[in-house]
Design a protein around this nucleic acid. Structure first.
Length: 601
DNA sequence: CACAGTATGACAGGCACG
DNA sequence: CGTGCCTGTCATACTGTG
């Protein structure tokens, strides 16, 4: 499966285009810049030339993040100070290059040449003489030492790094070593030495680079994810430099591209995080809502949900339709795997019949977010007549009109000059549900659109939940809040995870019927209990349920987005809105479950 | 009454530009 | 760094129809 065929998209992966547009980025060599213990003697602003205030501020900022000053200086020299985002990307790229030389791939750790090491970072020019020179220098460091250095850079102690190499052998990859240390920490029940979230890496695929946040060897300099500093970094990461006055505003920024902690087939998938003590299970939990909520909403949600950083993912990387969502969960994030078969990932793959009628000037390869409303017949007729009356190809204005409406309403081409909204069963397919999942059972067409528009994208959610399969070979007991049409249930079922018991809370009777009907049709052998209102789920009721089922393994829920979604022109009131305030019920119930289960164990 | 159709912007992020 | 422009967004309220 090729996860890179988006490259012709207009929403190119930003670092690709950035790097390609800047061949001069081939600058500083990676190897000598591998952070080492010497790094601890680097200082802040004092060593920075005061000649240029903005420059020295920039340098000390990056140095404070754990980059070596020489490397920072060099990167600024080459890129200028204008685009902080580019600077950070470049610095991180060099860091990753350095890391990758010391971490052979798990499947291929034979002798390797430079090409092997860097083939996945094609956008950087390695013909640079500096690079060759430093590759030679790097040969002087033993393989084991390089791994130790990398682990230390990731925030582990030298003792832990050495023990991990001892346990896993010298041929183990960095990822395996990091996992081993993490597992050892969990087994011992001790707080990790480097606070939570020592580093995070988003990696994509063979043609892209990876990002690492906050790597540093200095314990005191490690930034807690929950600190305000992370906002600064996220802000820089996603938007470049901003007004300093904004820094106190509690506002998380969205990553671009929106790929969460990594995608299927991402290579190498260097993901590892340490959660705050209070966030850890049991039970595991998984919370979802729209990514583009009003300012401050995700900060609040994150603060309530034990300060876990949201994972923002756009489902366009999983299927043919976009769906930008934030997920907060305490699940492990390594060894994820996608649902099979992989769903169609472009419009043409999903709807081959449309290709015949698709005009060349409609360059869409993905649909936008599937919503609860669809275009009217009147609009599609306006489009048809506009095209029928115009030349071939149509004028710029006509094309623009048609394209805008097609994007806005997710229209597809079904005939000459003829566009149409998706049918409910087509949306079911895009979202990963079985065909006719919402059909029948007293569900009207409008209700189907509404239920589907409010649902999970199953493949995306399943990818995150896939880590549960090995952990619960005998199946799981789940509390599903705001179940809707059962996206989480379908995801777990498709993953082959047995559902021992599901307590489903859903206000809509139509949706409850859909889930019940699906449950019966898939011959589930477990128990399904449905409850209409989250308000009914008080401490007594939960205690009773937990007693009956021996606790919950997983608490899933996507609370209502009505007052958060951008489409809402009337009552986009944020988390305090009538519907979206139900988030607090999610938190209340999750916290109750944690407390009750904590007592019983 | 149920259902379908329709009109109804605000707002934030990304980008190019000066 | 500010500005303008473009783009995208799990929706609500009202009206018409049978």
């Amino acid at each position: 499966m090729d996860w890179t065929d988006d490259s012709e998209d207009d929403d190119n992966i930003s670092w690709e285009s950035d790097e390609e547009a800047k061949p001069e980025n081939s600058g500083p060599p990676p190897a000598t810049n591998l952070p080492t213990v010497e790094q601890e003697d680097h200082t802040g602003p004092s060593r920075v030339s005061p000649a240029d205030p903005s420059r020295s501020k920039l340098i000390s900022h990056f140095v404070g993040m754990g980059f070596v000053e020489d490397m920072v200086t060099k990167v600024i020299d080459e890129n200028g100070e204008r685009d902080v985002n580019t600077l950070l990307e470049t610095l991180l790229t060099y860091k990753v290059i350095g890391t990758s030389t010391s971490s052979p791939r798990p499947s291929n750790n034979k002798k390797k040449g430079p090409d092997d090491d860097f083939s996945d970072i094609s956008s950087v020019d390695f013909s640079d003489a500096d690079y060759v020179e430093n590759e030679i220098e790097e040969e002087d460091i033993s393989e084991e030492d390089r791994k130790l250095l990398t682990l230390v850079e990731m925030g582990f102690s030298t003792d832990e790094a050495a023990s991990a190499v001892g346990r896993c052998g010298q041929n183990a990859s960095i990822l395996e070593l990091a996992d081993s240390i993490h597992a050892a920490q969990l087994a011992e029940g001790v707080e990790g030495p480097e606070e939570e979230f020592p580093w995070t890496c988003w990696s994509e695929d063979e043609s892209t680079t990876s990002f690492i946040f906050g790597a540093s060897t200095d314990k005191k300099r490690i930034r807690r994810w929950s600190d305000i500093d992370r906002r600064k970094r996220m802000k820089m990461y996603s938007q470049g430099s901003r007004n300093e006055d904004d820094e106190d505003l509690p506002s998380l920024s969205l990553p671009n591209p929106m790929i969460g902690f990594g995608l299927p087939n991402g290579r190498p998938l260097l993901t590892h995080r340490k959660l705050p003590e209070a966030a850890m299970g049991p039970p595991y939990f998984y919370y979802e809502n729209v990514a583009l909520a009003p300012r401050g909403v995700w900060d609040t949600i994150s603060r309530f949900l034990y300060d876990i950083e949201p994972e923002f993912v756009d489902s366009k990387f999983f299927c043919a339709a976009a769906r930008k969502r934030g997920y907060i969960h305490n699940l492990p994030i390594h060894n994820r795997f996608p649902l099979l078969p992989l769903p169609p990932r472009t419009i043409f793959e999903a709807f081959p019949m449309t290709k015949k009628w698709w005009p060349s000037w409609d360059t869409r390869t993905h649909l936008n977010c599937l919503q609860t409303c669809t275009a009217s017949a009147k609009l599609t007729e306006r489009i048809r007549s506009a095209l029928a009356d115009s030349d071939d190809p149509p004028s710029h204005n006509t094309r623009q009109f048609v394209i805008n409406e097609c994007r806005k309403w997710n229209l597809v081409w079904v005939g000459l000059h003829k566009v149409a909204p998706l049918e409910p069963d087509e949306i079911e397919m895009l979202l990963g549900f079985p065909r006719n999942h919402t059909r029948g059972g007293g569900s009207s067409r409008t209700e189907r659109y509404k239920s589907l528009g409010n649902s999970f994208q199953v493949d995306t959610v399943a990818y995150h939940l896939s880590v549960l399969k090995d952990m619960f070979p005998n199946g799981i007991t789940m509390l599903s809040l705001f179940s809707g049409i059962g996206g989480a249930e379908v995801a777990l079922h498709r993953l082959g995870i047995h559902l021992k018991a599901v307590v489903s809370v859903e206000i809509s009777e139509v949706n409850r019927n859909i889930v019940r009907s699906w449950w019966e049709q898939t011959n589930q052998t477990g128990t399904l209990i449905d409850i209409a209102d989250v308000q009914q789920l008080n401490g007594d009721k939960l205690e009773q349920l937990i007693h009956t089922f021996g606790g919950f393994d997983l608490v899933v829920g996507g609370s209502p987005c009505n007052n958060l979604a951008g489409s809402n022109r009337v009552s986009r009131d944020g988390l305090e809105g009538k519907h979206s305030a139900l988030f607090y019920d999610y938190f209340r119930i999750l916290d109750l479950v944690k407390n009750i289960m904590g007592k019983e164990s």
